[in-house]
Design a protein around this nucleic acid. Structure first.
Lengths: 242, 242
DNA sequence: CCGTAGCGGATGTCCCATGTCCCCTGAGCG
DNA sequence: CGCTCAGGGGACATGGGACATCCGCTACGG
Protein backbone atom coordinates (compact mmCIF):
# COMPACT_ATOMS: atom_id res chain seq x y z
CA UNK A 1 0.00 0.00 0.00
CA UNK A 2 1.52 3.31 -1.02
CA UNK A 3 0.04 5.52 1.65
CA UNK A 4 1.08 4.95 5.28
CA UNK A 5 -2.52 4.47 6.21
CA UNK A 6 -3.39 3.86 9.83
CA UNK A 7 -5.94 1.16 9.16
CA UNK A 8 -3.91 -2.07 9.29
CA UNK A 9 -2.98 -2.30 12.95
CA UNK A 10 -6.32 -2.20 14.73
CA UNK A 11 -7.85 -5.22 13.02
CA UNK A 12 -10.79 -6.68 14.85
CA UNK A 13 -13.30 -9.02 13.33
CA UNK A 14 -14.83 -7.76 10.15
CA UNK A 15 -18.22 -7.67 11.75
CA UNK A 16 -16.98 -5.43 14.53
CA UNK A 17 -15.50 -3.04 12.01
CA UNK A 18 -18.71 -2.80 10.09
CA UNK A 19 -20.65 -2.10 13.25
CA UNK A 20 -18.09 0.48 14.27
CA UNK A 21 -18.49 2.17 10.94
CA UNK A 22 -22.25 2.27 11.35
CA UNK A 23 -21.80 3.74 14.78
CA UNK A 24 -19.43 6.34 13.40
CA UNK A 25 -21.98 7.40 10.84
CA UNK A 26 -24.70 7.66 13.45
CA UNK A 27 -22.41 9.57 15.75
CA UNK A 28 -21.57 11.92 12.92
CA UNK A 29 -25.27 12.59 12.45
CA UNK A 30 -25.71 13.27 16.14
CA UNK A 31 -22.58 15.39 16.38
CA UNK A 32 -23.66 17.60 13.53
CA UNK A 33 -27.08 17.90 15.14
CA UNK A 34 -28.85 16.73 12.04
CA UNK A 35 -32.60 16.27 12.35
CA UNK A 36 -34.99 14.00 10.49
CA UNK A 37 -35.08 15.19 6.90
CA UNK A 38 -31.67 16.84 6.91
CA UNK A 39 -29.19 15.86 4.24
CA UNK A 40 -26.09 13.83 5.01
CA UNK A 41 -22.73 14.52 3.39
CA UNK A 42 -22.24 12.86 0.01
CA UNK A 43 -20.75 9.40 -0.23
CA UNK A 44 -17.40 10.79 -1.28
CA UNK A 45 -17.23 13.20 1.64
CA UNK A 46 -18.09 10.41 4.02
CA UNK A 47 -15.44 8.20 2.47
CA UNK A 48 -12.86 10.84 3.26
CA UNK A 49 -14.27 11.78 6.65
CA UNK A 50 -14.39 8.19 7.84
CA UNK A 51 -11.31 6.96 6.01
CA UNK A 52 -12.90 3.98 4.25
CA UNK A 53 -13.54 3.04 0.66
CA UNK A 54 -16.78 3.68 -1.09
CA UNK A 55 -17.82 0.03 -1.21
CA UNK A 56 -17.26 -0.46 2.47
CA UNK A 57 -19.06 2.76 3.26
CA UNK A 58 -21.97 1.86 1.03
CA UNK A 59 -22.43 -1.47 2.79
CA UNK A 60 -22.85 0.36 6.07
CA UNK A 61 -25.07 2.94 4.48
CA UNK A 62 -27.36 0.27 3.10
CA UNK A 63 -27.61 -1.29 6.52
CA UNK A 64 -28.54 2.03 8.05
CA UNK A 65 -31.10 2.49 5.34
CA UNK A 66 -32.57 -0.91 6.11
CA UNK A 67 -32.63 0.00 9.79
CA UNK A 68 -34.65 3.07 8.96
CA UNK A 69 -31.95 5.44 10.15
CA UNK A 70 -31.32 7.11 6.82
CA UNK A 71 -33.15 7.44 3.54
CA UNK A 72 -31.25 7.23 0.26
CA UNK A 73 -32.64 8.95 -2.80
CA UNK A 74 -30.99 7.90 -6.00
CA UNK A 75 -29.34 10.79 -7.74
CA UNK A 76 -30.18 13.30 -5.06
CA UNK A 77 -28.62 12.48 -1.75
CA UNK A 78 -29.00 10.83 1.63
CA UNK A 79 -31.18 12.10 4.45
CA UNK A 80 -31.96 11.35 8.05
CA UNK A 81 -35.12 9.29 7.88
CA UNK A 82 -38.30 9.38 9.92
CA UNK A 83 -39.08 6.26 11.94
CA UNK A 84 -39.34 3.18 9.84
CA UNK A 85 -39.54 -0.42 10.89
CA UNK A 86 -39.81 -2.09 7.51
CA UNK A 87 -36.52 -3.84 8.03
CA UNK A 88 -37.54 -5.41 11.30
CA UNK A 89 -40.64 -6.69 9.60
CA UNK A 90 -38.63 -8.37 6.87
CA UNK A 91 -36.39 -10.07 9.41
CA UNK A 92 -39.32 -11.27 11.46
CA UNK A 93 -41.21 -12.47 8.42
CA UNK A 94 -38.24 -14.56 7.46
CA UNK A 95 -37.97 -16.00 10.96
CA UNK A 96 -41.65 -16.76 11.07
CA UNK A 97 -41.67 -18.47 7.70
CA UNK A 98 -38.66 -20.49 8.71
CA UNK A 99 -40.37 -21.54 11.92
CA UNK A 100 -43.54 -22.54 10.12
CA UNK A 101 -41.57 -25.37 8.56
CA UNK A 102 -41.28 -26.87 12.02
CA UNK A 103 -43.74 -26.13 14.74
CA UNK A 104 -44.60 -22.52 14.12
CA UNK A 105 -43.03 -21.63 17.40
CA UNK A 106 -41.87 -18.16 16.49
CA UNK A 107 -45.15 -17.34 14.88
CA UNK A 108 -46.99 -18.25 18.07
CA UNK A 109 -44.54 -16.29 20.17
CA UNK A 110 -45.22 -13.31 18.01
CA UNK A 111 -48.92 -13.61 18.67
CA UNK A 112 -48.21 -13.84 22.40
CA UNK A 113 -46.22 -10.64 22.35
CA UNK A 114 -48.81 -8.87 20.29
CA UNK A 115 -51.52 -10.01 22.65
CA UNK A 116 -49.61 -8.78 25.68
CA UNK A 117 -49.18 -5.39 24.06
CA UNK A 118 -52.74 -4.98 22.87
CA UNK A 119 -54.49 -6.43 25.90
CA UNK A 120 -52.16 -4.59 28.23
CA UNK A 121 -52.51 -1.19 26.65
CA UNK A 122 -56.14 -1.16 25.59
CA UNK A 123 -57.09 0.22 29.00
CA UNK A 124 -54.73 3.18 28.80
CA UNK A 125 -55.85 3.88 25.28
CA UNK A 126 -59.48 3.91 26.35
CA UNK A 127 -58.65 6.56 28.93
CA UNK A 128 -57.59 8.92 26.19
CA UNK A 129 -59.86 8.05 23.32
CA UNK A 130 -62.00 10.75 21.74
CA UNK A 131 -65.45 10.39 20.23
CA UNK A 132 -63.97 11.02 16.83
CA UNK A 133 -61.45 8.21 17.17
CA UNK A 134 -64.19 5.92 18.43
CA UNK A 135 -66.19 6.68 15.31
CA UNK A 136 -63.16 5.82 13.20
CA UNK A 137 -62.92 2.44 14.87
CA UNK A 138 -66.55 1.70 14.25
CA UNK A 139 -66.08 2.66 10.64
CA UNK A 140 -63.39 0.00 10.34
CA UNK A 141 -65.71 -2.56 11.87
CA UNK A 142 -68.47 -1.65 9.46
CA UNK A 143 -66.10 -1.99 6.54
CA UNK A 144 -65.03 -5.41 7.76
CA UNK A 145 -68.64 -6.51 8.07
CA UNK A 146 -69.46 -5.30 4.59
CA UNK A 147 -66.50 -7.10 3.10
CA UNK A 148 -67.29 -10.23 5.08
CA UNK A 149 -70.83 -10.18 3.78
CA UNK A 150 -69.47 -9.90 0.26
CA UNK A 151 -67.18 -12.83 0.93
CA UNK A 152 -64.05 -10.76 0.44
CA UNK A 153 -60.99 -10.73 2.67
CA UNK A 154 -60.52 -7.57 4.71
CA UNK A 155 -56.89 -7.41 5.72
CA UNK A 156 -56.64 -3.65 5.35
CA UNK A 157 -59.71 -2.92 7.40
CA UNK A 158 -58.49 -5.30 10.07
CA UNK A 159 -55.14 -3.55 10.14
CA UNK A 160 -56.84 -0.17 10.35
CA UNK A 161 -58.95 -1.34 13.23
CA UNK A 162 -55.97 -2.28 15.36
CA UNK A 163 -54.05 0.85 14.47
CA UNK A 164 -56.93 3.08 15.43
CA UNK A 165 -57.46 1.21 18.65
CA UNK A 166 -54.11 2.48 19.91
CA UNK A 167 -53.91 5.79 18.12
CA UNK A 168 -55.02 7.67 21.27
CA UNK A 169 -51.84 6.65 23.08
CA UNK A 170 -49.87 8.71 20.62
CA UNK A 171 -47.05 6.21 20.88
CA UNK A 172 -45.37 5.92 17.53
CA UNK A 173 -43.05 3.15 18.64
CA UNK A 174 -46.01 1.04 19.66
CA UNK A 175 -47.85 1.68 16.42
CA UNK A 176 -44.72 0.77 14.50
CA UNK A 177 -44.25 -2.43 16.44
CA UNK A 178 -47.87 -3.43 16.02
CA UNK A 179 -47.58 -2.55 12.36
CA UNK A 180 -44.64 -4.88 12.08
CA UNK A 181 -46.42 -7.69 13.84
CA UNK A 182 -49.39 -7.11 11.64
CA UNK A 183 -47.31 -7.29 8.51
CA UNK A 184 -45.70 -10.50 9.64
CA UNK A 185 -49.05 -12.01 10.51
CA UNK A 186 -50.43 -10.99 7.16
CA UNK A 187 -47.62 -12.78 5.39
CA UNK A 188 -48.03 -15.87 7.53
CA UNK A 189 -51.72 -15.69 6.92
CA UNK A 190 -51.36 -15.98 3.18
CA UNK A 191 -48.78 -18.71 3.65
CA UNK A 192 -50.90 -20.98 5.79
CA UNK A 193 -53.91 -20.60 3.57
CA UNK A 194 -56.46 -17.97 4.34
CA UNK A 195 -59.44 -19.68 2.81
CA UNK A 196 -60.48 -21.72 5.79
CA UNK A 197 -61.34 -18.86 8.08
CA UNK A 198 -64.82 -17.68 8.84
CA UNK A 199 -64.90 -14.04 7.78
CA UNK A 200 -68.16 -13.25 9.48
CA UNK A 201 -66.95 -14.67 12.78
CA UNK A 202 -63.77 -12.60 12.66
CA UNK A 203 -65.76 -9.48 11.90
CA UNK A 204 -68.05 -10.28 14.81
CA UNK A 205 -65.10 -10.60 17.17
CA UNK A 206 -63.97 -7.16 16.16
CA UNK A 207 -67.40 -5.74 16.71
CA UNK A 208 -67.36 -7.20 20.20
CA UNK A 209 -64.10 -5.43 20.91
CA UNK A 210 -65.53 -2.20 19.57
CA UNK A 211 -68.64 -2.56 21.69
CA UNK A 212 -66.57 -3.03 24.83
CA UNK A 213 -64.44 0.00 24.01
CA UNK A 214 -67.48 2.12 23.27
CA UNK A 215 -69.02 1.05 26.57
CA UNK A 216 -65.86 1.97 28.40
CA UNK A 217 -65.54 -1.50 29.85
CA UNK A 218 -61.79 -2.06 29.96
CA UNK A 219 -61.84 -5.57 31.34
CA UNK A 220 -64.26 -6.74 28.71
CA UNK A 221 -62.26 -5.08 25.95
CA UNK A 222 -59.13 -6.88 27.08
CA UNK A 223 -61.06 -10.12 27.28
CA UNK A 224 -62.49 -9.75 23.78
CA UNK A 225 -59.05 -8.99 22.41
CA UNK A 226 -57.74 -12.11 24.06
CA UNK A 227 -60.45 -14.18 22.42
CA UNK A 228 -59.50 -12.69 19.09
CA UNK A 229 -55.90 -13.74 19.62
CA UNK A 230 -56.89 -17.20 20.75
CA UNK A 231 -58.50 -17.61 17.36
CA UNK A 232 -55.36 -16.53 15.58
CA UNK A 233 -53.26 -18.88 17.66
CA UNK A 234 -55.53 -21.78 16.90
CA UNK A 235 -55.42 -21.08 13.20
CA UNK A 236 -51.62 -21.13 13.21
CA UNK A 237 -51.50 -24.33 15.22
CA UNK A 238 -53.94 -26.00 12.86
CA UNK A 239 -51.92 -24.98 9.84
CA UNK A 240 -48.71 -26.32 11.29
CA UNK A 241 -49.98 -29.63 12.58
CA UNK A 242 -51.85 -30.53 9.43
CA UNK B 1 -23.58 -6.96 -23.88
CA UNK B 2 -23.13 -10.37 -25.51
CA UNK B 3 -25.77 -12.21 -23.53
CA UNK B 4 -29.40 -11.17 -24.04
CA UNK B 5 -29.74 -10.38 -20.39
CA UNK B 6 -33.18 -9.54 -19.10
CA UNK B 7 -32.15 -7.10 -16.42
CA UNK B 8 -32.30 -3.67 -18.09
CA UNK B 9 -36.00 -3.32 -18.89
CA UNK B 10 -37.65 -3.86 -15.52
CA UNK B 11 -36.14 -0.89 -13.76
CA UNK B 12 -37.99 0.20 -10.65
CA UNK B 13 -36.65 2.46 -7.98
CA UNK B 14 -33.29 1.42 -6.65
CA UNK B 15 -34.72 0.84 -3.22
CA UNK B 16 -37.30 -1.55 -4.60
CA UNK B 17 -34.63 -3.48 -6.41
CA UNK B 18 -32.55 -3.84 -3.29
CA UNK B 19 -35.53 -5.09 -1.34
CA UNK B 20 -36.38 -7.48 -4.11
CA UNK B 21 -32.86 -8.81 -4.02
CA UNK B 22 -33.09 -9.36 -0.27
CA UNK B 23 -36.37 -11.15 -0.76
CA UNK B 24 -34.84 -13.30 -3.45
CA UNK B 25 -32.05 -14.34 -1.13
CA UNK B 26 -34.47 -15.18 1.65
CA UNK B 27 -36.69 -17.08 -0.77
CA UNK B 28 -33.68 -18.98 -1.97
CA UNK B 29 -32.94 -20.00 1.59
CA UNK B 30 -36.51 -21.13 2.10
CA UNK B 31 -36.68 -22.89 -1.25
CA UNK B 32 -33.56 -24.88 -0.54
CA UNK B 33 -34.95 -25.76 2.87
CA UNK B 34 -31.90 -24.44 4.65
CA UNK B 35 -32.08 -24.44 8.44
CA UNK B 36 -30.38 -22.25 10.99
CA UNK B 37 -26.68 -23.02 10.81
CA UNK B 38 -26.67 -24.28 7.23
CA UNK B 39 -24.25 -22.73 4.78
CA UNK B 40 -25.39 -20.47 1.97
CA UNK B 41 -23.88 -20.62 -1.51
CA UNK B 42 -20.73 -18.55 -1.93
CA UNK B 43 -20.93 -14.94 -2.99
CA UNK B 44 -19.93 -15.81 -6.53
CA UNK B 45 -22.54 -18.50 -6.86
CA UNK B 46 -25.19 -16.11 -5.58
CA UNK B 47 -24.03 -13.46 -8.04
CA UNK B 48 -24.65 -15.87 -10.87
CA UNK B 49 -27.83 -17.34 -9.46
CA UNK B 50 -29.41 -13.94 -8.87
CA UNK B 51 -27.89 -12.19 -11.85
CA UNK B 52 -26.37 -9.24 -10.01
CA UNK B 53 -22.87 -7.95 -9.41
CA UNK B 54 -20.91 -8.80 -6.35
CA UNK B 55 -21.10 -5.37 -4.75
CA UNK B 56 -24.82 -5.13 -5.21
CA UNK B 57 -25.20 -8.59 -3.78
CA UNK B 58 -22.92 -7.79 -0.86
CA UNK B 59 -24.96 -4.73 0.04
CA UNK B 60 -28.02 -6.93 0.36
CA UNK B 61 -26.05 -9.55 2.22
CA UNK B 62 -24.86 -7.03 4.76
CA UNK B 63 -28.40 -5.88 5.29
CA UNK B 64 -29.53 -9.43 5.89
CA UNK B 65 -26.66 -9.87 8.29
CA UNK B 66 -27.73 -6.75 10.17
CA UNK B 67 -31.28 -8.07 10.25
CA UNK B 68 -30.03 -11.24 11.87
CA UNK B 69 -31.09 -13.40 8.96
CA UNK B 70 -27.64 -14.60 8.02
CA UNK B 71 -24.27 -14.78 9.68
CA UNK B 72 -21.14 -13.97 7.71
CA UNK B 73 -17.89 -15.54 8.82
CA UNK B 74 -14.90 -13.94 7.23
CA UNK B 75 -12.91 -16.39 5.21
CA UNK B 76 -15.29 -19.26 5.70
CA UNK B 77 -18.74 -18.65 4.39
CA UNK B 78 -22.23 -17.45 5.10
CA UNK B 79 -24.78 -19.26 7.21
CA UNK B 80 -28.40 -19.02 8.20
CA UNK B 81 -28.27 -17.30 11.58
CA UNK B 82 -30.12 -17.97 14.80
CA UNK B 83 -32.37 -15.18 16.05
CA UNK B 84 -30.58 -11.94 16.59
CA UNK B 85 -31.99 -8.51 17.22
CA UNK B 86 -28.81 -6.51 17.51
CA UNK B 87 -29.71 -4.50 14.47
CA UNK B 88 -33.05 -3.42 15.80
CA UNK B 89 -31.32 -2.27 18.94
CA UNK B 90 -28.92 -0.08 17.01
CA UNK B 91 -31.74 1.53 15.10
CA UNK B 92 -33.73 2.16 18.23
CA UNK B 93 -30.74 3.50 20.10
CA UNK B 94 -30.19 5.99 17.35
CA UNK B 95 -33.82 7.04 17.42
CA UNK B 96 -33.83 7.38 21.16
CA UNK B 97 -30.67 9.47 21.22
CA UNK B 98 -32.07 11.66 18.49
CA UNK B 99 -35.25 12.14 20.48
CA UNK B 100 -33.38 12.99 23.66
CA UNK B 101 -32.26 16.19 21.94
CA UNK B 102 -35.88 17.28 21.98
CA UNK B 103 -38.37 15.98 24.48
CA UNK B 104 -37.26 12.41 24.90
CA UNK B 105 -40.54 11.32 23.41
CA UNK B 106 -39.32 8.12 21.83
CA UNK B 107 -37.43 7.16 24.93
CA UNK B 108 -40.58 7.50 27.00
CA UNK B 109 -42.61 5.57 24.44
CA UNK B 110 -40.08 2.81 24.68
CA UNK B 111 -40.55 2.62 28.43
CA UNK B 112 -44.31 2.50 27.91
CA UNK B 113 -44.03 -0.43 25.58
CA UNK B 114 -41.65 -2.24 27.85
CA UNK B 115 -43.96 -1.67 30.77
CA UNK B 116 -46.92 -3.04 28.87
CA UNK B 117 -44.97 -6.14 27.99
CA UNK B 118 -43.53 -6.81 31.41
CA UNK B 119 -46.59 -5.91 33.46
CA UNK B 120 -48.83 -7.74 31.05
CA UNK B 121 -46.87 -10.95 30.91
CA UNK B 122 -45.58 -11.26 34.46
CA UNK B 123 -48.76 -13.12 35.41
CA UNK B 124 -48.39 -15.77 32.72
CA UNK B 125 -44.75 -16.15 33.58
CA UNK B 126 -45.58 -16.72 37.23
CA UNK B 127 -47.90 -19.55 36.22
CA UNK B 128 -44.99 -21.43 34.75
CA UNK B 129 -42.11 -20.49 36.97
CA UNK B 130 -40.10 -23.21 38.71
CA UNK B 131 -38.43 -23.05 42.12
CA UNK B 132 -35.09 -23.10 40.41
CA UNK B 133 -35.87 -20.10 38.27
CA UNK B 134 -37.23 -18.29 41.30
CA UNK B 135 -33.93 -18.88 43.06
CA UNK B 136 -32.11 -17.45 40.07
CA UNK B 137 -34.16 -14.30 40.29
CA UNK B 138 -33.39 -13.88 43.95
CA UNK B 139 -29.73 -14.35 43.20
CA UNK B 140 -29.91 -11.41 40.81
CA UNK B 141 -31.57 -9.31 43.49
CA UNK B 142 -28.91 -10.22 46.01
CA UNK B 143 -26.20 -9.27 43.57
CA UNK B 144 -27.84 -5.94 42.96
CA UNK B 145 -28.06 -5.27 46.67
CA UNK B 146 -24.43 -6.14 47.18
CA UNK B 147 -23.32 -3.87 44.37
CA UNK B 148 -25.60 -1.10 45.61
CA UNK B 149 -24.08 -1.36 49.06
CA UNK B 150 -20.65 -1.09 47.50
CA UNK B 151 -21.76 1.98 45.61
CA UNK B 152 -21.25 0.35 42.23
CA UNK B 153 -23.64 0.38 39.32
CA UNK B 154 -25.32 -2.94 38.55
CA UNK B 155 -26.51 -2.84 34.99
CA UNK B 156 -25.77 -6.49 34.30
CA UNK B 157 -27.52 -7.79 37.37
CA UNK B 158 -30.51 -5.60 36.54
CA UNK B 159 -30.58 -6.98 33.03
CA UNK B 160 -30.32 -10.53 34.35
CA UNK B 161 -33.19 -9.92 36.70
CA UNK B 162 -35.57 -8.91 33.95
CA UNK B 163 -34.47 -11.71 31.66
CA UNK B 164 -35.01 -14.33 34.29
CA UNK B 165 -38.37 -12.92 35.17
CA UNK B 166 -39.68 -13.96 31.77
CA UNK B 167 -37.56 -16.99 31.10
CA UNK B 168 -40.38 -19.34 32.13
CA UNK B 169 -42.49 -18.19 29.20
CA UNK B 170 -39.95 -19.73 26.88
CA UNK B 171 -40.65 -17.01 24.36
CA UNK B 172 -37.48 -16.13 22.55
CA UNK B 173 -39.01 -13.28 20.64
CA UNK B 174 -40.09 -11.66 23.88
CA UNK B 175 -36.69 -12.09 25.47
CA UNK B 176 -35.08 -10.64 22.38
CA UNK B 177 -37.39 -7.65 22.39
CA UNK B 178 -36.87 -7.01 26.07
CA UNK B 179 -33.14 -7.41 25.51
CA UNK B 180 -33.30 -4.75 22.85
CA UNK B 181 -35.24 -2.39 25.04
CA UNK B 182 -32.81 -3.02 27.80
CA UNK B 183 -29.86 -2.25 25.61
CA UNK B 184 -31.43 0.97 24.45
CA UNK B 185 -32.27 2.00 27.97
CA UNK B 186 -28.75 1.23 29.08
CA UNK B 187 -27.37 3.52 26.40
CA UNK B 188 -29.82 6.25 27.27
CA UNK B 189 -28.97 5.77 30.89
CA UNK B 190 -25.30 6.53 30.38
CA UNK B 191 -26.26 9.42 28.13
CA UNK B 192 -28.52 11.20 30.61
CA UNK B 193 -26.07 10.76 33.44
CA UNK B 194 -26.40 7.79 35.70
CA UNK B 195 -24.93 9.37 38.80
CA UNK B 196 -28.06 10.91 40.16
CA UNK B 197 -29.92 7.69 40.81
CA UNK B 198 -30.35 6.08 44.18
CA UNK B 199 -28.85 2.61 43.80
CA UNK B 200 -30.26 1.27 47.03
CA UNK B 201 -33.75 2.42 46.13
CA UNK B 202 -33.58 0.75 42.74
CA UNK B 203 -32.37 -2.48 44.33
CA UNK B 204 -35.20 -2.28 46.84
CA UNK B 205 -37.75 -1.90 44.04
CA UNK B 206 -36.44 -5.06 42.48
CA UNK B 207 -36.63 -6.91 45.76
CA UNK B 208 -40.27 -5.87 46.04
CA UNK B 209 -40.95 -7.34 42.64
CA UNK B 210 -39.20 -10.54 43.62
CA UNK B 211 -41.16 -10.77 46.86
CA UNK B 212 -44.43 -10.43 45.01
CA UNK B 213 -43.42 -13.09 42.51
CA UNK B 214 -42.27 -15.45 45.26
CA UNK B 215 -45.56 -14.94 47.05
CA UNK B 216 -47.47 -15.72 43.87
CA UNK B 217 -49.31 -12.42 44.04
CA UNK B 218 -49.70 -11.50 40.39
CA UNK B 219 -51.47 -8.22 40.90
CA UNK B 220 -48.84 -7.00 43.32
CA UNK B 221 -46.03 -8.09 41.01
CA UNK B 222 -47.54 -6.13 38.16
CA UNK B 223 -48.00 -3.14 40.46
CA UNK B 224 -44.40 -3.24 41.66
CA UNK B 225 -43.15 -3.48 38.11
CA UNK B 226 -45.23 -0.46 37.24
CA UNK B 227 -43.67 1.49 40.10
CA UNK B 228 -40.26 0.53 38.82
CA UNK B 229 -41.10 1.88 35.39
CA UNK B 230 -42.55 5.06 36.82
CA UNK B 231 -39.15 5.70 38.31
CA UNK B 232 -37.42 5.18 34.99
CA UNK B 233 -39.88 7.44 33.26
CA UNK B 234 -39.35 10.18 35.81
CA UNK B 235 -35.60 9.94 35.44
CA UNK B 236 -35.83 10.39 31.68
CA UNK B 237 -38.19 13.33 32.03
CA UNK B 238 -35.89 14.99 34.52
CA UNK B 239 -32.89 14.56 32.28
CA UNK B 240 -34.66 16.05 29.29
CA UNK B 241 -36.28 19.04 30.95
CA UNK B 242 -33.15 20.11 32.73
C1' DC C 1 -45.28 33.26 -18.65
C1' DC C 2 -44.76 28.51 -18.90
C1' DG C 3 -43.16 24.11 -20.50
C1' DT C 4 -39.18 21.43 -21.64
C1' DA C 5 -34.55 19.99 -22.93
C1' DG C 6 -30.07 19.93 -21.15
C1' DC C 7 -26.66 20.08 -17.39
C1' DG C 8 -24.35 18.93 -13.13
C1' DG C 9 -24.05 16.24 -9.37
C1' DA C 10 -25.13 12.21 -6.64
C1' DT C 11 -26.24 7.52 -6.23
C1' DG C 12 -26.47 2.57 -8.53
C1' DT C 13 -24.04 -1.20 -10.54
C1' DC C 14 -20.22 -3.62 -11.81
C1' DC C 15 -15.36 -5.42 -12.38
C1' DC C 16 -10.81 -6.24 -10.88
C1' DA C 17 -6.89 -6.57 -7.80
C1' DT C 18 -5.22 -7.45 -3.50
C1' DG C 19 -5.46 -8.18 1.54
C1' DT C 20 -7.13 -11.00 5.31
C1' DC C 21 -9.12 -14.70 7.67
C1' DC C 22 -10.67 -19.34 8.62
C1' DC C 23 -11.05 -24.35 8.25
C1' DC C 24 -8.91 -28.43 6.76
C1' DT C 25 -5.27 -31.48 5.94
C1' DG C 26 -1.22 -33.97 6.38
C1' DA C 27 3.53 -34.29 7.75
C1' DG C 28 6.23 -34.66 11.78
C1' DC C 29 6.81 -35.89 16.54
C1' DG C 30 6.11 -37.97 21.10
C1' DC D 1 -1.34 -44.68 17.46
C1' DG D 2 -2.67 -40.08 18.66
C1' DC D 3 -1.58 -35.30 18.98
C1' DT D 4 0.20 -30.78 17.35
C1' DC D 5 0.98 -27.28 14.21
C1' DA D 6 2.49 -25.23 9.84
C1' DG D 7 0.84 -24.71 5.24
C1' DG D 8 -2.65 -24.55 1.47
C1' DG D 9 -6.71 -23.23 -0.56
C1' DG D 10 -11.15 -21.34 -0.47
C1' DA D 11 -14.00 -17.52 0.88
C1' DC D 12 -14.89 -13.04 2.47
C1' DA D 13 -13.06 -7.81 3.08
C1' DT D 14 -11.51 -3.70 1.17
C1' DG D 15 -10.38 -0.28 -2.09
C1' DG D 16 -10.34 1.99 -6.53
C1' DG D 17 -12.10 3.07 -10.98
C1' DA D 18 -15.45 3.24 -14.84
C1' DC D 19 -19.83 3.68 -16.55
C1' DA D 20 -25.00 3.85 -16.14
C1' DT D 21 -28.95 5.96 -14.13
C1' DC D 22 -31.62 9.20 -11.85
C1' DC D 23 -33.03 13.65 -9.84
C1' DG D 24 -33.53 18.57 -9.35
C1' DC D 25 -32.36 22.87 -11.24
C1' DT D 26 -31.79 26.12 -14.79
C1' DA D 27 -31.83 28.35 -18.99
C1' DC D 28 -33.52 28.32 -23.41
C1' DG D 29 -37.35 28.75 -26.67
C1' DG D 30 -42.15 29.07 -27.84
Amino acid sequence: MPSPNIVPPARFSAQARLRALQSDIMDLILDRELEAGDALPTENELCIALGVGRNTLRESLKVLQALGVIEIRHGFGMFVAPSNFEALADGLIFRARLSLRHHGLEALQLVDVRQALESGLIGSSMDLITAEQLAGIEESVVRMEELAAAGESFVDADSDFHSRLFEPLNNELLLNLLGVFWKVYRKIHTEIGAGAEDLAAVAALHRNVYAAVAAGDKARAARELTRHFDGIRRRISDAVTE
